[in-house]
Amino acid sequence: MAPIDLGDDPLALDRQVCFALSVASRNVIALYRPLLTPMGLTHPQYLVMLALWERAPRSVKDLCATLQAEAATLSPLLKRLESIGYVTRTRSTDDERLLAVDLTDAGARLRSEAEKIPYRVVELLGMDVAELERLNAALSRVIDASRTALDGR
């Protein structure tokens, strides 16, 4: 492996991946907020809905794996989505430990409105779709590399 060269100041804020990811995440999520508000969704709830629009019903365990989140994080999101009428949560008759999450009719119908969001975000960012796809691929590599590093601790 070649030596790592981090330049003259390895602690320069503008060179820190964690800083760039943090600011970019905060700013991009802020773009979503006014788009999601009319639907009564927060960004984390939107992520849950995206997973359910891909495939429903899903177990809480499956949602946790898909969204890379803990059950304790998802539980209040799911309760809120249920209270606003977008999902149902039901215990499995075969195994009461399993909780299935499914879309209600209102939750399924919401998808057609939500389909406008990615287009609007691309417009707001003013970036080419190809550039955003490359960024998404690079971030996926960062996620995989960090997960591997964390698993190897």
Rank of each mutant, 00 (worst) to 15 (best):
A149F: 14
S140A: 15
L35G: 00
L135S: 11
A24P: 04
A51R: 09
G40K: 07
L67F: 04
R80Y: 07
F19P: 00
R33E: 04
P38W: 00
D94Q: 08
L103I: 11
C18M: 09
M1H: 04
S140D: 15
T90M: 10
Y86C: 00
N27M: 11
R26L: 11
R26Y: 13
L21T: 02
I84C: 13
A130I: 09
A100H: 15
D8C: 04
L135T: 11
E82H: 11
D144Y: 13
R33Y: 01
L81G: 00
R147W: 07
D105R: 14
Q16S: 09
R153V: 11
A149N: 05
E133I: 13
E131Q: 13
A138F: 13
Q68S: 14
S83Y: 06
V60W: 02
S59H: 05
K116Y: 05
V101N: 00
L110R: 14
P10N: 02
Q16V: 03
A138I: 06
T148M: 10
A72P: 00
K61G: 06
S25I: 02
M39L: 15
L125Y: 01
M1Q: 03
S92I: 02
I29E: 13
A137S: 14
D151A: 15
D151L: 13
S83C: 09
R80D: 12
Y32V: 02
L35N: 00
L110T: 02
R91D: 07
G7L: 06
A30W: 05
D8R: 08
P76E: 05
L50K: 09
A138C: 10
R134W: 10
P57R: 05
N27T: 09
D144M: 14
D128E: 15
M127N: 10
M127D: 09
L11R: 09
L125W: 01
S146V: 14
L31Y: 04
D8I: 07
L99Y: 06
L124A: 08
L31P: 02
D5G: 04
T90N: 07
V142L: 15
P10H: 04
P3T: 09
G85T: 12
D144R: 14
G40D: 05
R147L: 09
V129Y: 08
P10L: 02
P44Q: 01
R147I: 05
R147T: 13
T148N: 07
Y86W: 06
A12R: 15
I84G: 07
T66F: 02
D14Y: 11
V121C: 06
E96Y: 02
Q45A: 10
F19M: 08
A138W: 12
P34L: 01
D102N: 14
V17I: 13
T148L: 13
Q45P: 01
W53V: 07
